[in-house]
Design a protein around this nucleic acid. Structure first.
Length: 293
DNA sequence: CCGCGGGCCTGAGAGC
DNA sequence: TGCTCTCAGGCCCGCG
């Protein structure tokens, strides 16, 4: 599922139930997800209090009152579901019928009440790990991550610097977490369309030298930040697996301009092109070859 | 160092 | 109905 906007949506959904709360019990329904759980996983969490819920790139990070940090990744199909133990869900609740692949259940109690937080992940590409707090920033998950596309720090100049000397097509460069952290297949396609740039274009042609290349860099940086911000505001995109923590889907898929729109008309004003699908580095790319240059 | 392809898993949907 | 095939939002590893 999840790219940055989906993980950010999940983070915001988890925070009210988790921040300040204590793990009363951790149930594991299998020994591993993508990787085995770390040794004594449940015991090391039990009775710990969660100081804060954070996100870096597509990782969820729970800072605890112990020496451990709980790091969680949703992989392709992971989702969390939050229930208040003392107020059962309404009959119309979006999730009640789904129970297969509930691999981890956190039992929590805190100032906002008692909650069950359930992790579900059909494909099990997600994982959970405990990392020593003092080693967090140097850990291999985080040491090489690039800039966050939220806020204002990713501007044209910064982006041009990241793309300098790169021969890979823009699509591959934007997917590289070491350059920009958190973009995935959907939002890269959407940002390139919004910026009017072809996904096949060689990265270093976006640069700080020359007025046109500079304008391209600014347009692309603006498009990346705008797409991510709008997707977060919409609660992310739900194709198959992504759910907000109350079981409802995200809504940004209704705002897709290219993703999953093969053969449909381009939505850029005055463009009469149609959306193409090609494969780059083994992944689908959707774009308009009429207005993306 | 850089860029690419394969593999990890299950499920949904298309085509026969 | 049911089989087989393809594809899916991520990431790591190893190769050239």
């Amino acid at each position: 599922m999840p790219e940055l906007p989906e993980v950010e949506t999940v983070k915001r959904g988890l925070a009210p139930a988790m921040e300040g709360a204590r793990f009363d019990k951790v149930e594991l329904n299998r020994p591993n997800l993508r990787f085995p759980f770390p040794p004594n996983f449940a015991a090391r969490l039990k009775n710990c209090t969660i100081n804060s819920v954070a996100r870096r790139a597509k990782y969820l990070i729970l800072h605890l009152d112990s020496d451990d940090v709980l790091v969680m990744h949703l992989g392709m199909s992971g989702s969390f579901y939050v229930e208040n133990k003392n107020s059962p869900p309404a009959k119309s609740d979006a999730r009640t019928r789904i129970t297969a692949h509930d691999h981890v259940i956190f039992h929590l109690s805190g100032a906002n009440g008692e909650h069950l937080v359930t992790y579900n992940d059909p494909r099990r590409f997600g994982f959970m790990d405990l990392i020593a707090a003092e080693n967090l920033s140097s850990h291999k998950f985080f040491a090489k991550l690039g800039i966050e596309p939220t806020g204002n720090s990713l501007d044209g100049k910064c982006l041009a610097r990241l793309l300098a000397n790169r021969k890979a097509p823009l699509k591959a460069a934007l997917l590289d977490q070491k350059l920009i952290a958190g973009l995935g297949n959907i939002y890269v396609c959407e940002a390139l369309w919004q910026a009017g740039l072809a996904p096949t274009r060689i990265s270093h042609t976006i640069s700080t030298s020359g007025a046109k290349a500079r304008a391209n860099a600014i347009a692309l940086a603006d498009a990346v930040r705008d797409v991510i911000a709008r997707a977060i505001a919409a609660g992310g995109s739900s194709l198959n697996d992504h759910r907000q923590t109350d079981g409802t889907p995200g809504y940004f898929q209704h705002e897709f301009n290219v993703y999953n729109r093969e053969n449909e008309p381009c939505r850029k004003s005055h463009c009469s092109g149609h959306i193409k699908r090609i494969v780059q580095s083994g992944r689908s790319t959707y774009y308009c070859d009429s207005c993306q240059k």
